[in-house]
Amino acid sequence: MEYQFIRDPITGFKVKISDEQVLIARWLNEELDKSEVADLLARCKTMTKGQAAWVRLGSEIRFTLNTEEALFEAHALFQEGSDISQYADDALALDDHGLVAGCGFEDFVDLLTAWQQFITGR
C-alpha cells in the first residue's frame, strides 16, 4: 500500500492513499482521533487468530478489524431508506467506488505505526 503523509499548517496532519483505498485515508483523517492511535495499535498486538472481529462505528465509516484484514465501509452502503429499484428503467446502478476499502492486517499495522510516528514526531 502506498501512502503519503502531509503536515499542513492549516488543516493539520493528513494522509493520502491511492484512489481505490481513499476510504482508509478518510477514516484516518476524519474518524480516528490522534489520541486513539496508540490504543488501536495495542489492540492490534493483542489480537489472536480466531478471535471475533472488532467493529468500530464512526460517524460515516464502519471499521472492522480481524487478524486477516482491516475493512472500511461507508455507512452509505447500508442505507435501506432509498429504493433504487424505481430507477431500474434508467439503467442506473449503485456505484460502490470509494465506499469500501480494505487491506491486509499486516499492511494496516504498518500504516498505523507509520502514522503514529508521523503525528508524534518520533
Rank of each mutant, 00 (worst) to 15 (best):
M1E: 12
M1C: 13
E2V: 14
Y3K: 08
Q4S: 15
R7Y: 13
D8S: 15
P9S: 14
P9L: 14
T11F: 15
F13P: 04
K14S: 11
K14D: 12
I17E: 02
V22D: 03
I24C: 07
A25I: 05
A25S: 05
A25R: 01
A25V: 07
W27N: 06
L28N: 01
E30G: 04
E30T: 09
E30F: 13
E31Q: 10
L32M: 06
D33R: 14
K34S: 10
S35G: 08
V37T: 11
A38Y: 06
D39L: 11
L40A: 05
R43H: 12
C44S: 06
C44Q: 01
K49E: 12
K49C: 04
K49I: 02
G50S: 01
G50W: 03
Q51G: 06
Q51I: 02
A52I: 10
W54Q: 09
L57V: 11
L57E: 15
L57A: 14
G58I: 10
R62D: 04
R62G: 02
F63K: 00
F63S: 02
T64Q: 13
T67A: 11
E68L: 08
E69R: 09
E69N: 09
E69H: 04
A70G: 08
E73P: 08
A74M: 00
A74T: 00
H75C: 08
H75E: 07
H75D: 09
L77T: 01
E80C: 03
E80H: 05
E80R: 09
D83G: 00
S85N: 09
Y87M: 04
A88E: 13
D90W: 09
A91N: 13
L92Y: 14
A93L: 05
L94A: 07
L94E: 03
D95N: 13
D95F: 05
D96T: 04
D96E: 03
D96N: 07
D96G: 05
D96W: 07
H97I: 02
G98F: 12
C103V: 11
C103G: 06
G104P: 03
F105R: 02
F105G: 08
E106S: 15
F108D: 00
F108I: 00
D110C: 05
T113G: 07
W115T: 02
W115N: 01
F118L: 04
T120P: 03
T120V: 11
G121V: 09
G121Y: 07
